[in-house]
Every structure is written in C-alpha cells, then in structure tokens.
Amino acid sequence: MDILVLVKHVPDTETRVKVAPGGTSLDLGEANFVVSPYDEYAVEAALQLKEKQGSATITVLTVGTDEAVKSIRQALAMGADKGVLCGDPSFEGSDAGGTARILAAAIKKAPFDIIFCGKHGVGDDNQQVGSLVAALLGIPAVTVVTSIDYSEAGLVRCHREVEGGVEVVKTPLPCVITCQKGLNEPRYPSLKGIMAAKKKEVVNYKAADLGIDPAQAGKAGAAFEIKGYELPPPRPEGRMLGGEVADQVNELLRLLHDEAKVI
C-alpha cells in the first residue's frame, strides 16, 4: 500500500507576528518553524494505517524551501519512509491553488492508495489544499476528519466534524483525508527514529521535473494579489470590576445589558 502525507513547514503557534516595514509582508521575528500541528495528525494516521496493513510505504510531500526538509525529517523520524521536497525558486509565494497544482503533479509521478493531510495549515489558514489536490487528482476528499474506519475493503468510513454534530461519510479509495484534532495522538519521534530519519531518502523535485509552468506557481500563479498586512486594531481599554462578588456580578450584568447591550 502506498500512503502519502502532505506536510507543511510553518512558524510555531507561539510566534508573534508583526508587519514588516513597507506593510506588504509579515515579520515573524526569530520564529521556530515546525510541522503544521494538524499535519502531525496526518502523519500519525498514516503510521497507524501502515501498522494495521503490516506493510506499506509512507511518503511525505512538502512544497517549500530547503529549510522545509526539517519538517520532512520530523515526519521521517516519527516513522514515515521517504520524503519528497518540491522546492524551486518559482514555487515561492504560491497560494493554495499553486501549492495544490505542484503537489498534484508530484503525486501523479507514483502510485498511491490514500493521501492524508492537515485540516488546515497554520499561518495561511486556507483550509483548501487537501480539497484542491483531491479535485485535481479527480478523487474524493473527506475533510475535518475525527475518526477513520478501514474495516471494509476498498473504502473508508470517516467521521467529519460539522456544526452541532458529526457526519458519517463513506468513500472509495483512493481519496484525500484532511485530519482534525481528535483523530489520534501524534507520537513523539524516538531517538532511534531520529537517527534513522537522517538516512532516509528525500528527493527534490524542481519545476521542470514536475512540468510546472512558472506562470502557474509562485506569486505569478496566485489568484489574488496581497496588497498589504495589518495588525488587528487594539481592543478598547477594559474595565475591572471591584467590590464584593455580589456587587461585581450586578455591575457586570448592568454593563452587559445596558452599556454593551449583548444580553
């Protein structure tokens, strides 16, 4: 069985964001880059499926710069088998559509049975790439998945989170599954895993290897032009309520009802 995992290399969630001078890019300071948190669920889902299957090959794919190999190695250390870095100067600044076109081209180079990715990539917060890749490959996607049942051959039955409930979705393989918190508990790499990961193969695909027209990727291929970034407006100064608890509560209700008019 060939299992694919799409992993994005992102600034960790502690990162404080500033707007860079000029206003058209963000200053992430000394941000520490990691595997996007939801993609850890995707890697874990792949590892658990491989364990169930007995034998399978897990390939991790990333669109990013050479730096992003760090996240590929992290997934390899968790237990994935091979890495693919889609890294080309013309890919930088790709939007979700461009990233999906690159990933789909890389995926088409080899057979696959199932593709796991994250529900969304932290930072850009697009929640698009998994669905777009599926559409480009002409296969179904099940998004925001919190459980997967493999008990029937050739198909999967997933729980996906919707407002106020859970949809049970049945889909034939191959398909894309976008992983949500709750699906599993991602394992930590063992020391042995970290050592082994250093020796695992990571191939690098350039635009030409994938037949990607530079006009279809990077900023040139993006559907929208980023005009600028801003920080959220500061919230108005708050008010601390003093006195005994009964007074605090009465004052709070008065403020919520009469001043803010929200209850």
């Binding site: 600034p11 990162t15 404080r16 964001v17 707007v19 963000l26 932290v122 930072g123 850009d124 917060d125 993006a222 559907a223 929208f224 032009e225 980023i226 005009k227 600028g228 970034y229 801003e230 920080l231 959220p232």
Partner: peptide, 24 residues
C-alpha cells in the same frame, strides 16, 4: 473589491485583491 482576511488565526490581517479580469 479588496478583501481582508485573518492570517495566523487573527494575529494579523491580509488585504487581497483578485487579479484583474479573473473570476474568483
């Protein structure tokens, strides 16, 4: 139209405009 959307879960906002003549 120019649209604003949160990035980094609202730690910042991006203003984005569709490229001329493109549906979106």
């Amino acid at each position: 139209a120019t649209y604003r959307r949160p990035v980094y879960s609202g730690k910042a906002y991006a203003a984005a405009a569709p490229k001329a003549g493109k549906s979106y």
